[in-house]
Structures are given as structure tokens and as C-alpha cells.
């Protein structure tokens, strides 16, 4: 190996790990004024306040988890079933193209244009409204994701089960779900992350009342409370790290 290669790789690893380390350190700091390179206080005081009502971070964490789990579950299951209809439809290409419109559009603009309807339906400023709104952007992803699963091979398997006397429920539970297990898990993770990372749409439909973690980060930035901002960032990035690890260890490796 050339000498510069390890240097570049080390730099790459440092650059990747630096944000994680820096945000953890910032979340443990307070009273860190310019021009000090190190903070005046460094400890677990901020982290201890997660459980207090002052920051509201525990509540935000829980609401974020509930919203993301709901969005991921509903999107993955509906995407799996409905993509079958779309993929086997004679006008498959047109239907798939229609799916791309909401997928490609900025969620925040989509949310702003839809906000009137959410207001009329009484979903404005409610967690249910945020779940419905996020579902509208996660669903197209799930639909596109599963489109490759419904191919000729899958269709032949379905026909084989029918020929052998299996009904529709058996086809799904005994054949299709087991062979799509890996894809279902990946889609669940991805749609969970779409929801977990979502800010713009949530701020429009939640109107500040549904305070997910991304909304909290923004609120703390506005208040110039960077320590709590960093704390919110840590709560926001560590669950996805765990999911990525599990995804890579147990899902990718098994389906590749």
C-alpha cells in the first residue's frame, strides 16, 4: 500500500467520527464562551436534565419514537401490499411515474400546499396529523422500494401456491412474507429514518405543537442554547446508528 493511503483513510475515519465526538462533548459542556477552546464546565449535568420537564427532551424522544414507528409500520405494510397491485397492473409504468411526483418533491413544500386540508380535517398541530403527513412521503418510497420484488419469479411462486391449493392468506404468510423478510426489514428501517429525520413537513403540519427531536434541535438553535441543541442531536443520531449497525449486521449480510 502506498504511504499516503493510510493517511487519507485515517483522515476519513477522523472526519466521520468527529461530528459524533464533538456533539457528545458539546452536550456535556456548559458556559463555553468565546474564545475558550475548552468549556468551563464539563460533565453529565445536561444529560441528567433529559428526565426533567425543563427541556422536554424525554417527551420529544417518546413522541418521535411513536411517530416514526407508526409511519414505518404503516408505510412498509401498505407499500408492500399496494406495490403488488401497481407492479402487476397493465399500466404499471404510468402508476409508478405517479408515485415519483410526491417522492421527488420537497416534503416541506408538499406539506405547505397540503396544510389547508389538514386544517379542515382537524389534523393540524396534532401527532396524528404529523403521522399522516409523514406517511404521505414515506409511502411512495416504500412503493418504489418493493416494486422490484414483484417480478416474474414472485408471480410464478404465487401461481405455484395457487396450483397446489393454497389460498391468498397462505400465499402471503407462508411464501411471500418469508421471502420478503429482509426487504421488509430494510424498508421498515428506511421509512423509520425518513420519519425520524423529518423536519420541514413536521414543522408545517405540527405547527410547533408536535415537538419531535428535529423540532427541538431547531428550537434550541433559535434560543442559542447549543448545549441542549447538541443533546437533542445526540438523541437524534444514536438510534439510527444502532439501527444501521443492526441493519448491516443482521439484514444486509443475510440477503446479499
Amino acid at each position: 500500500m502506498k504511504l499516503w493511503k493510510p493517511a487519507i483513510l485515517s483522515l476519513l475515519v477522523i472526519l466521520i467520527l468527529f461530528p459524533f465526538v464533538y456533539l457528545v462533548l458539546l452536550s456535556m459542556a456548559s458556559n463555553w464562551r468565546f474564545p475558550e477552546v475548552l468549556p468551563a464546565y464539563f460533565g453529565l449535568k445536561n444529560w441528567g436534565r433529559i428526565f426533567g420537564s425543563e427541556t422536554g427532551l424525554l417527551g420529544s424522544f417518546i413522541i418521535s419514537v411513536v411517530i416514526s414507528l407508526s409511519v414505518a409500520t404503516v408505510s412498509t405494510l401498505s407499500g408492500f401490499f399496494i406495490s403488488r397491485t401497481v407492479s402487476y397492473h397493465p399500466r404499471k409504468n404510468t402508476l409508478t411515474l405517479l408515485t415519483y411526483f410526491p417522492y421527488i418533491m420537497a416534503p416541506v413544500v408538499f406539506g405547505a400546499c397540503l396544510s389547508f386540508f389538514f386544517l379542515k380535517l382537524g389534523l393540524f398541530g396534532k401527532p396524528t396529523g404529523v403521522i399522516v403527513a409523514q406517511f404521505m412521503i414515506a409511502f411512495p418510497y416504500a412503493l418504489i422500494f418493493f416494486s422490484s420484488f414483484w417480478n416474474e419469479r414472485t408471480k410464478s411462486l404465487e401461481n405455484l401456491v395457487a396450483t397446489l391449493g393454497g389460498n391468498r392468506v397462505q400465499t402471503f404468510f407462508k411464501v411471500l412474507f418469508p421471502i420478503a423478510k429482509g426487504m421488509l426489514l430494510i424498508c421498515f428501517f428506511q421509512t423509520f429514518l425518513i420519519s425520524w429525520f423529518e423536519y420541514g413537513l413536521t414543522s408545517i403540519i405540527g405547527v410547533g405543537k408536535v415537538q419531535t427531536l428535529t423540532i427541538k434541535v431547531f428550537l434550541f438553535i433559535k434560543e442559542a442554547n447549543f448545549y441542549y441543541g447538541a443533546l437533542s442531536c445526540c438523541l437524534l443520531i444514536f438510534p439510527p446508528v444502532v439501527l444501521l449497525y443492526l441493519n448491516k449486521k443482521y439484514v444486509f449480510n443475510k440477503i446479499v
Binding site: I16, P19, Y22, Y199, T214, V217, L244
Partner: peptide, 14 residues
């Protein structure tokens, strides 16, 4: 894979 765990709002904050 780790950078994929960082959402836009956190990246901007950082």
C-alpha cells in the same frame, strides 16, 4: 455507513 445516521438539521447545526 455512519454519516447516513446524521440528518440535515444535525449536519447544519454541526
Amino acid at each position: 455507513y455512519l454519516p447516513l445516521a446524521i440528518p440535515g438539521v444535525v449536519a447544519a447545526f454541526f
